[in-house]
């Protein structure tokens, strides 16, 4: 048993070296050339091709946002920067550019739900931290396993048992966090309003309500074939027609 445990530990640390680079593509170079030549359409095509390979690469979404910004497509640009931030909350360039792009909108809805605990939770459960949580949980398990080979006299002490049980509890917590951050990858879809839309409801007899400005990022709560129930940044929930939103 001791032998197998050592093998597992060695495999664990050896596996870090498995992150080998894929074969290098010419697309990044083509993208750079397109950006230098201000050929925004082709740059967008290059980025889209790369995003098919790596849809969770925040830098690609950031660059796509820059391309849209250069094309004066503010709503699309905002959505791409937002997506880059969701994938990597520490992407400062994306944060800066998002502010610049949003500052150019005529109207914006205030964000009422940006309090600190929610921000922390969003940050800690973002996909960016997933691997940290996953390997911390694994490392704690390995430590607990190794501790079983300490002298019997030490193992019987109460303090040792408290430390061991705490480590076990923490490792389970980290594992749960890893799961949350991993599953939040699926929630990085960004919907952005494509034109100044009045709030509407999913019935033909609906009345027009407050205007939702162009470029507003909304989160989709519910879907019907033609209508989406969305949450606006100010916390208001409403129905909007599918064609008024663009998905990234």
């Amino acid at each position: 048993m001791k032998f197998y445990f050592i093998i597992a530990t060695v495999l664990n640390f050896a596996s870090f070296s498995v992150w080998a680079d894929n074969a290098k593509s010419t697309l990044p170079l083509q993208f750079q050339q397109a950006m230098q030549n201000k050929n925004w359409d082709f740059a967008n095509v290059c980025i889209d091709s790369m995003l098919q390979e790596a849809p969770y690469q925040d830098q690609l979404w950031y660059n796509k946002g820059v391309v849209y910004y250069q094309q004066h497509l503010l709503a699309e640009s905002i959505a791409c920067f937002q997506k880059a931030i969701l994938l990597n909350p520490f992407n400062k360039d994306a944060k800066d550019n998002l502010l610049v792009a949003q500052s150019r909108l005529v109207d914006r809805l205030p964000n009422y739900f940006d309090f600190i605990l929610l921000r922390w939770w969003k940050l800690l459960s973002s996909p960016y931290f997933h691997t940290y949580w996953a390997f911390t949980a694994l490392g704690l398990w390995v430590l607990i396993g190794l501790s079983m080979y300490l002298p019997k006299a030490l193992q019987t002490k109460k303090q040792f048992r408290i430390v061991k049980n705490s480590m076990l509890f923490l490792s389970i917590c980290f594992f749960i966090m890893a799961y949350f951050s991993w599953s939040s990858l699926k929630n990085t879809t960004v919907f952005v309003v494509q034109s100044d839309q009045a709030m509407q409801y999913a019935t033909p007899m609906s009345k027009l309500g407050t205007k939702v400005p162009y470029g507003t990022i909304v989160s989709v709560l519910e879907r019907t074939p033609n209508w989406y129930k969305v949450a606006l940044p100010n916390g208001v929930e409403t129905w909007m027609q599918q064609q008024t939103l663009t998905k990234f």
Binding site: V18, K24, F31, S49, Q59, V66, N97, V100, H130
Partner: peptide
Amino acid sequence: VKLSQFHNYNRSINAQNPFYAFDHVW
């Protein structure tokens, strides 16, 4: 909002997803 300078595109990009441990069998 405190506006910063608009940053240009990032040159050091690659078409590779970040490492997500849960996606790997090992």
